Computed example of a mutant assay.
Amino acid sequence: MTGFQFKYTVAAAVLALIPAMGAAQTLESAQEAYDAGDYQTAFREWRQLAERGDATAQYELGWMYDNGEGVAQDYAEAARWYRMAAEQGDVDAQFSLGAMYDLGEGVQQDYAEAMRWYLKAAEQGDIDAQYNLGNMYAEGSGVARDDAEALRWYRMAAEQGDAEAQGILGMMYENGEGAPRDLAEAERWYLMAAKQGDADSQALLGLMYATGDGVAVDDVTAHMWLSIAALAGQPEALEAKGVVASSMTASAIAEADRRALVCMGSGFQNCD
């Protein structure tokens, strides 16, 4: 390669990068404007990129129409822009379009279409899409009810840390839905969710310790979890705590209360 050819090749490569660099800078400046609350500027810059086919900008434009930020709320326009981005593989847009079909916002409600887009997003690892697919299989929305499939999708979301999915997985194992009844697995998933502050799981975990289902009966631990759930507003926990307390000594209740304070003070991590 001659010196001239080398310089020409380098120059061509640099020129080829300029549009992408410009798009990245505009995306960044649009995001900065959005974060600063300047929705009109963000909308204008994202629209310019979206009209040139940028999937990220198309998703952001859909979000702004969806939420009425920088523009009048318009679900139909939101769905239109989400679709453009979703068809290019944007995972956030795929989930959002699925949600619009699920709720019938901007499009005619269509559970089968909702499932189709949720599935695309879920297969890219989107936790919310995995959780929603679990719901749809559990409820039989857009698909025949299938507890085993529901459990499979809930597990995917749960393994990524979704507290609600963890709690539902615990209930499914406790009740033998979608898998053989397994109280040890139920307790394991309830505990994961409880440590993320999920009040329903905290209450259900307390009930397991109160009744001895899958674990040794432990009134102090039961009282601790039920107290924590009750303080979070879980509706059945307060009454259940009273039932447990009726067979406890004053010193045992005091110990349960002490442990509850330690547990809550540690962000639900030090609860043993």
Rank of each mutant, 00 (worst) to 15 (best):
Ala144Asn: 11
Arg145Asp: 05
Arg145Asn: 08
Ala148Trp: 06
Ala148Gly: 01
Glu149Thr: 10
Ala150Lys: 00
Trp153Glu: 03
Trp153Asp: 04
Trp153Arg: 00
Arg155Cys: 01
Met156Phe: 06
Ala157His: 02
Glu159Gln: 07
Gln160Ile: 01
Gln160Arg: 08
Asp162Ala: 02
Ala165Met: 00
Ala165Glu: 00
Gln166Ala: 00
Gly167Cys: 06
Gly167Thr: 05
Gly170Ala: 08
Met171Leu: 15
Tyr173Asn: 01
Asn175Phe: 10
Glu177Thr: 09
Gly178Glu: 01
Gly178Pro: 03
Gly178His: 01
Pro180Ser: 05
Pro180Val: 03
Arg181Leu: 12
Arg181Lys: 13
Tyr190Thr: 11
Leu191Cys: 07
Ala193Glu: 05
Ala194Gln: 07
Lys195Glu: 15
Gly197Met: 04
Gly197Lys: 04
Asp198Gly: 04
Asp198Arg: 12
Asp200Tyr: 14
Asp200Val: 14
Gln202Pro: 07
Ala203Val: 06
Ala203Ser: 15
Leu204Ser: 15
Leu204Tyr: 11
Leu204Gln: 11
Leu204Glu: 09
Leu205Trp: 11
Leu205Asn: 03
Gly206Gln: 01
Leu207Trp: 13
Leu207Met: 15
Tyr209Cys: 10
Tyr209Gly: 08
Val215Gly: 05
Val217Asp: 09
Asp218Gly: 08
Thr221Arg: 10
Thr221His: 00
His223Asp: 11
Met224Ser: 00
Met224His: 01
Trp225His: 04
Leu226Arg: 04
Leu226Ala: 02
Ala230Val: 09
Ala230Gly: 03
Ala232Asp: 13
Gly233Ile: 12
Gly233Leu: 10
Gln234Arg: 11
Gln234Glu: 15
Pro235Gln: 06
Glu236Thr: 15
Lys241Asp: 09
Gly242Phe: 13
Val244Leu: 05
Ser246His: 12
Met248Leu: 12
Ala250Gly: 08
Ser251Ala: 15
Ser251Gly: 10
Ala252Thr: 12
Ile253Tyr: 09
Ile253Gln: 13
Ala254Trp: 10
Ala254Ser: 14
Ala260Glu: 14
Ala260Ser: 15
